[in-house]
Design a protein around this nucleic acid. Structure first.
Lengths: 212, 212
DNA sequence: GACAGAAACTTAATACCGTTTAGTTTCTGA
DNA sequence: TCAGAAACTAAACGGTATTAAGTTTCTGTC
């Protein structure tokens, strides 16, 4: 029964080809400015073929963004060193911000396209990976709390506050690229330190600030 | 020459009527789900008439969002008490966040519609008011720095870091309404205090934290 | 009061869009 | 060889923003 396997493989290959073409176009032109017709033209199939592989344009986007988020997740996981949880936490946050500043158009596609905001039913893949990433943040924060150095009143509140600050910086960088930002690296450090250090006793916070 | 005045007044009235109808529809259905035809139908004119008053759909959005931002600006200005600059700053930040959580759809229209992100040329009205609001934040921060209580290394960096944290919280509230947020008021206070207090010597920061 | 011209508004068309229906072609397994 | 499944497509539907050209309405002047 090698035929069925080949067929399945071919089907998967075309699926990947569609996603690759769509990602390239979405990133270059923006989700709204890319039509199913344009994607079809790029892969030299008829527009209707895409609907055999994806429910609709939103589903296609969901799959693409899921891939992006999984890629980011892998990158963040690879950076963990496991020595000092606070260092790991800050390193992860900085890496998150820098990943998106390097791939701004992916961020636009992932977070600045209406669809995902509307209902988690349609963008369930993204929602799932996003939830996993938030879970990872919370875990790292708990590790900080479990070590002797941290004073966290409410872990959930702390995690959400940090998420907000980090997310806001990325979103503004990307939304207002022409704004007269101060030195990017300095600003990132300021936001990360401000968000994390406010949960940490002064003594340790100062040590961290010096170390970075 | 009372006729020309009346004509001008009538013209302005229709302009306002268009904006009112469009705002209502945009807020209810979202920018992308509202067509010029629907707006025209609501005001009982032909779609083309709108183009006599606004360059295109994007221009119409720009004008509407400008109005929203000016309204918010007025609200923020009215809250200034001028006694303690740090209190004024935090009050303003909280008010900013709460304004958008009360009008989430206006925020969607204002900040989560592609157009504005693309080029400041097209959304110049919003860009201008937005710049004024950022200027106001910087002014308040300078007032804090000028009073005896503050230690701000770089004012611009501090302003941008605060802006990021505050903006991020609002954006996440609105983008992920189904996320299991902790108590909203607590979270807002945490983010505001974390952002502002990191610029303030410990002694004062603690006083502020108690006061809120 | 008649009337030229400006202003306001509309009709009809252009060139797109996402998606669906109803096919056609290609391939597979018996 | 051939029935049926799988893969793919042509054509259409009902929508979109925007524009060009035409019509109606109003105004100021004679």
């Amino acid at each position: 029964m090698g035929v069925q396997e080949r067929r399945a493989r071919e089907k998967e290959e075309l699926r990947q080809e569609i996603m690759e073409a769509a990602r390239e176009l979405f990133v270059k032109e923006g989700f709204d400015n890319v039509s199913m017709r344009k994607i079809a033209e790029k892969i030299e199939y008829s527009p209707t073929t895409i609907y055999l592989y994806f429910q609709d344009k939103g589903d296609l986007l969901d799959c693409i963004v899921e891939e992006t988020l999984l890629n980011l997740t892998a990158k963040l996981d690879s950076l963990r060193e496991g020595r000092d949880p606070v260092v790991d936490l800050k390193t992860g946050l900085r890496a998150y911000i820098e990943y998106w500043t390097v791939h701004p158009n992916d961020f636009r596609v992932a977070f600045m396209t209406d669809l995902k905001a509307l209902d988690p039913n349609r963008a369930w893949r993204c929602t799932a990976v996003g939830a996993a990433m938030y879970g990872s943040l919370r875990t790292r924060l708990r590790e900080c709390a479990d070590s002797e150095v941290l004073e966290i009143r409410d872990l959930e509140t702390a995690a959400q506050a940090i998420w907000a600050a980090i997310y806001g910086l990325v979103a503004l960088f990307i939304m207002k690229p022409h704004f007269p930002w101060v030195d990017q690296s300095t600003l990132i450090d300021t936001v990360v330190n401000s968000a994390v250090d406010s949960m940490i006793p002064k003594r340790v916070a100062q040590l961290e600030a010096v170390g970075s």
